[in-house]
Write a protein that binds this DNA or RNA. Structure first.
Lengths: 206, 206
DNA sequence: AACACTGTTCAGTGGCACGATACATTGAGT
DNA sequence: ACTCAATGTATCGTGCCACTGAACAGTGTT
């Protein structure tokens, strides 16, 4: 009967825990077990009891169903037109091939997704030194995710400003007033993902 | 730790078993435990282990979610309070602060969004040289957007493979079989955005 | 009188779910 | 350099409880 594969379940626990942003020790404390045991479980050399598993699933925000039977597609059915060539089929886009917009006296935007999509934009943005602030840019529903690849980017969100250095990331709702500029001497390179969401389907969890 | 109330769970097991029309002995035989143990569990003076509970839930046709009480509802929605500090308020996350997971013999994931979100992940992934493919990682509905920051990443989507060099980007639906690995001598750094979408509102595409 | 089912009881045990305590590593702050 | 405070991991050990086995009693059949 013991056909449960604790190692893959442990992997899912670890993934969900990291996704929830808590450490193994913190999880252990919350569910009342020792850190070593959490480590063992996540690496497949131990297993949670039912109460521990239930408590853990709560803390790391994963349903028991997803722990045991993660959503997976049916292999026979999909047949979504097999790809031929990743470049020709619009999956891959090469550096330098991205459609680019150079705003006058502003940053340079390159759209990284090949085909335009209604509700999502994947962008590389280059802010030249001294790039001026865009006064008030389009206000839209959604959420923005960014990471600075190189350089130092000055940001202001909701009236609060800070400086993002290489590796720093930022996430905020688009309706907050926000602007970015580059006060440094070097150009700034950043990756942005902007998702437009219809009002009403906001993720309803803590 | 939350003391699971085994008696009420046992009651649900019994109800579901009777509703499924099988005897306790039959259930015991199917899940590989003794009849006495099933009896004890159903009367709350014993408890199933995780594998037994999982197997039992299958046999008596009840979801694990229904076995345990409806967990809990989310706390009241926070007001859109004005931000005070971009770092403290979970908008900005500094380099090196990202929660990171190192899969054994696999890539290293860092979550770039500060708080976990139900339907979106913003990730930096470092593929060490020679990183092997993880065959059985979580398969989800949605769409993935990636750009290689440095190094050369080998990708295979829908059975077609190519190599992404620095600056190359890729976008595809998650349900296409896909994997990534690093055949080069240098580590690869990439930024990913993975959006999970509930089946049903998928954007129509080829 | 057997059967053939049903669920229940209870003493007993083996395994594993767990803890205590170590260690290695990394990043931040002297 | 040296802490200090985190992180995850390794190893050894043990107490408990998930489970068994063999009994028990009841209810219909034939």
């Amino acid at each position: 009967m013991n056909d449960l594969q604790w190692d893959v379940i442990g992997n899912r626990v670890r993934s969900a825990r990291v996704a929830a942003g808590i450490s193994a020790r913190e999880l252990a404390r919350r569910i009342g077990v020792s850190p070593s045991h959490v480590s063992q479980v996540e690496r497949g050399i131990g297993a949670f009891s039912v109460p521990a598993l239930y408590a853990a699933a709560r803390e790391i925000d994963i349903s028991l169903h997803d722990l045991f039977d993660p959503p997976q597609e049916a292999p026979p059915a999909p047949a979504p037109a097999t790809l031929q060539d990743l470049d020709a089929d619009g999956v891959v886009q090469r550096a330098g091939q991205h459609p680019t917009i150079q705003l006058s006296d502003g940053p340079r935007w390159s759209r990284l997704n090949v085909a335009a999509e209604a509700d999502a934009e994947f962008l590389e943005v280059i802010y030249q030194p001294g790039t001026r602030v865009l006064p008030d840019y389009i206000r839209h529903e959604g959420r923005e995710y960014g990471i600075v690849i190189s350089g130092a980017l000055d940001v202001e969100v909701d009236g609060v400003r800070t400086t993002l250095n290489a590796g720093d990331s930022i996430v905020f709702d688009s309706q907050r007033p926000h602007r970015f500029w580059n006060e440094s001497e070097a150009e700034v390179r950043a990756i942005w993902f902007v998702r437009d969401s219809e009002p009403g389907d906001a993720a309803p969890h803590a």
